[in-house]
Design a protein around this nucleic acid. Structure first.
Lengths: 193, 193, 193, 193
DNA sequence: CATGAATGAGCCTTCATTCAT
DNA sequence: GATGAATGAAGGCTCATTCAT
C-alpha cells in the first residue's frame, strides 16, 4: 500500500517517555515496598531498564518519586469513598472506608514517610494527602450530619489512628488488630460515648 | 558508719568509659531525634567528642545504640504505671497512662523504629518493648476486671493507635489530636459501646 | 566492499572509559608490585586520577583488578611458547620458555597470589592460569614425544618449582639462582636421570 | 592476723609473663595458619586471653610475632638434619631432609612471608632462616664431598624450589607433586646430569 | 606488668548527581 | 530525550597503637 501523504514526524520518543515513566513507577513501588524508602535510586533505574539520568529527568528527587508512586495508589481510596457514600448509611460508609484503608494500606505496604505526610502539612505527597484528607473529611461530615457521630469529632484524629496501625502492618496479626481498632474508634466517636 | 580509711583513688579510665557512654547516649538521642534513625554514626561520635572506634566499642551496631538510647527513656513510663495504678480508678489509670504516653513520646520524639518494635516481636528494643507492653497489659487487665472496659479488648490495639499518633507527632496540633484520640479510644472500649 | 557513508563520529565518553581502564591497570600493576596485593584500592584510584567509584565500576573487586592486571601480562609468555616451539628443538624450547618465565616473572614482579593460582584450580586469574598451564603443558608434551624428557613428568611440577623462584625474586641474586634451577630441573627430568 | 615478717616480693608476674608468651605463640600459630599473615593482632590477643597491650609488650611488631611463631617450628627441621646425617648416606640424607621439609612445611602451613625470608637476607625471621639455611648448606656440602652431587650446586637453589612447592601447598595434590619435585631436583643435581 | 578503653587514620563501598555523547 | 561513565563525598567499620590505671 503506497503512502501518498508525507509521514508525520514520529511521535515515538513521547511514547517512550510515557512508557518509561510508567515502568519507573511500577518498579519503584515494588522496590520501595521491598526495601523501604531509602532504596537505591540507581537500583530502581537499573530494574526499570533505564539509565540513572533518565530516572533523574522524570523524578528529580527521591520525594518526587515517592509522590509519583503513591499518588496513584490512593486514587482508589478516593473512588471508594464516593461509592460508599452512595450506597451506605453515613456511619457505615465511614466504617467501610476505614476498613478499606486498613486493608489497602497494609496490603500495599505503603511506606511510612508517605503515610505520615498524609496528616502533615508537607508539600510533598500533596496529591495523596489531599485525596485521603478530603475523603475522610467528607465521610465524617456526613456522619455528623446524620447524628451518628459526635459533632466535635476531628476527622484527622481517626486518620492518625489508622496510620498508626499501618505503620506496624508487619506485625503478625496486625490485620485483625486493625479491624478491631476501626470498630473501637467508631464506637468511641458516637454521640453518647 | 564512719569511714576511717581514705577513699580509694578514683579509677579514671573506668570513669572515662562511663562518662563516654553517657555522653554517647545523650548525643545520640539528640541526633536521632533531629535526623532520624538513619543518622550518621560517625557524626554522633564526632559530636560526642570521641572516635568512631569508641562508639563502636560501646555500641557495636546501630540497633544496639537505639536500644541503649530508648530503653532508659521508657522506664519512666513503667514507673508511672505503678503510680497511677495505686492512686486512680482502673479506667482513669489507663487514661492517665495513655495521655502520659502521648505526651512523653511526643515530647521525646522517640523515633519510629523504636516505637514500632514496641508492638512487634523483635529482639531489639527488647527492654523498651517489654516495659511498655507490660504496662498497658496490666492497666487494661485491671480496667477489665473493674468492668469499665470490654472484656475482649486487646491492649495492643490501644498501643498501636497510640503509636500512630506518636509517629506523626511533628504535625502542628498533634498534641490535642492525640489527647482527643485517647478519649475516643477509651470511650470506644467501654462495655456498652 | 567500499563504505560510502561517512564514518560515525567517535564516541568520546567511550574513549574516556577505555583510557581510564588502561590507566587503572597501569597504575595498579605499579602499586601492586611496589606494595603487594593488599595495597589500598583508594590509593590506586587516586594515583590514576579517578574517584574510588570509577575504579569500582571497572573492577568491582580486588581480585578482578588483579586478574585484569596480570591477565594481559602473561599473554607474552603464551606467545613465546608458540615462537619457541616453531624454532627450537622440543627440550630447548622448554628450557627457553622456562628461562623466559623466570626472567619475565621476576622482572615484572608478578605478585604471589597471582602466581599461586597458576597451579591452583581457582576461578580468579582464570585467564592467566589457563595460558600458563597450557603453555607448559604443550612444551612438556612435545619434549616427551621427542624422547628428551621422561614420559611420566608432570608439567605442573616444573611450574611449581618455577613459581617458587618467582616468589623470592626479591632476593639479591635470585636471577642466577633461578637460571641454574631451570637447568637442574631439566637435567633431572631427562629419561636416564 | 598480724604479719610480722615483710612479705617476699611475689615472683608471680614473671611466671605469668612466660605463660603468656607461650600462650600467645600457640594462639598466633593457629590464627596465622587459619587466616594468614594479615590476621588481626587484636583477635590473637583476645583468643590468648590477654589485652592488646600485653601482646604488644611481648611482640612489638607483627613481624616479631611471626618470627616468634615460626622460629620454634623449624627447630625440628634442624634436628632432623643431624639425625639424617648420622644415619644415611649423604645424598639420601639430603633427599630425606628435603622430603621432610616438604611434609613439614605443608602440614604446618607455614605462611609465605616466613618462608620467603628463609632465602632472603631479611633481618626478621633471622632465627628460622639461619636454621634452615644452615641445615641445607651442610647437607649439600656433605653430598658434594661424597661425589654424589655436582660440586657447583648452590644449596639455595634447592631451597628456593622447595619453597615454591610450599607456597602452593593448598593445591589438591601438592604433596605428591612436591615429592616428585624432590627427586627431580636431586637427579638434576648429580654430577653427570 | 597487665589491662583494655580510647584513638583516629584509613579501608572498602555506596550513591545521588552531573554531563558529554 | 536517553544513556551510562565519572564523580567524590560520606558512610560503616577495622585495627594497630597508646596510655591511664
Amino acid at each position: 500500500m503506497p503512502k501518498s501523504s508525507p509521514p508525520p514526524p514520529p511521535r515515538k520518543p513521547r511514547a517512550d517517555a510515557r512508557r518509561n515513566r510508567e515502568r519507573i513507577l511500577e518498579v519503584a513501588k515494588e522496590v520501595f515496598t521491598r526495601s523501604g524508602a531509602d532504596s537505591s535510586l540507581d537500583e530502581i533505574a537499573k530494574l526499570a531498564g533505564i539509565g540513572p539520568g533518565t530516572l533523574y529527568r522524570h523524578f528529580p528527587s527521591r520525594e518526587s518519586l515517592l509522590e509519583g508512586v503513591y499518588c496513584g495508589e490512593v486514587e482508589k481510596l478516593a473512588a471508594a469513598e464516593r461509592r460508599f457514600s452512595d450506597t451506605l448509611t453515613p456511619v457505615e460508609a465511614l466504617r467501610a472506608w476505614m476498613l478499606l484503608f486498613v486493608d489497602y494500606i497494609g496490603a500495599k505496604q505503603i511506606i511510612a514517610p508517605a503515610l505520615n505526610t498524609m496528616v502533615g502539612g508537607s508539600k510533598v505527597f500533596e496529591c495523596a494527602r489531599d485525596q485521603v484528607q478530603g475523603a475522610i473529611h467528607r465521610l465524617v461530615a456526613r456522619a455528623i450530619e446524620s447524628g451518628d457521630i459526635r459533632a466535635d469529632l476531628d476527622p484527622f484524629d481517626l486518620l492518625r489512628a489508622l496510620i498508626g496501625v499501618a505503620n506496624v502492618a508487619s506485625a503478625p496479626n496486625w490485620r485483625d488488630s486493625a479491624r478491631r481498632l476501626v470498630h473501637i474508634l467508631i464506637a468511641g466517636s458516637r454521640p453518647g460515648a
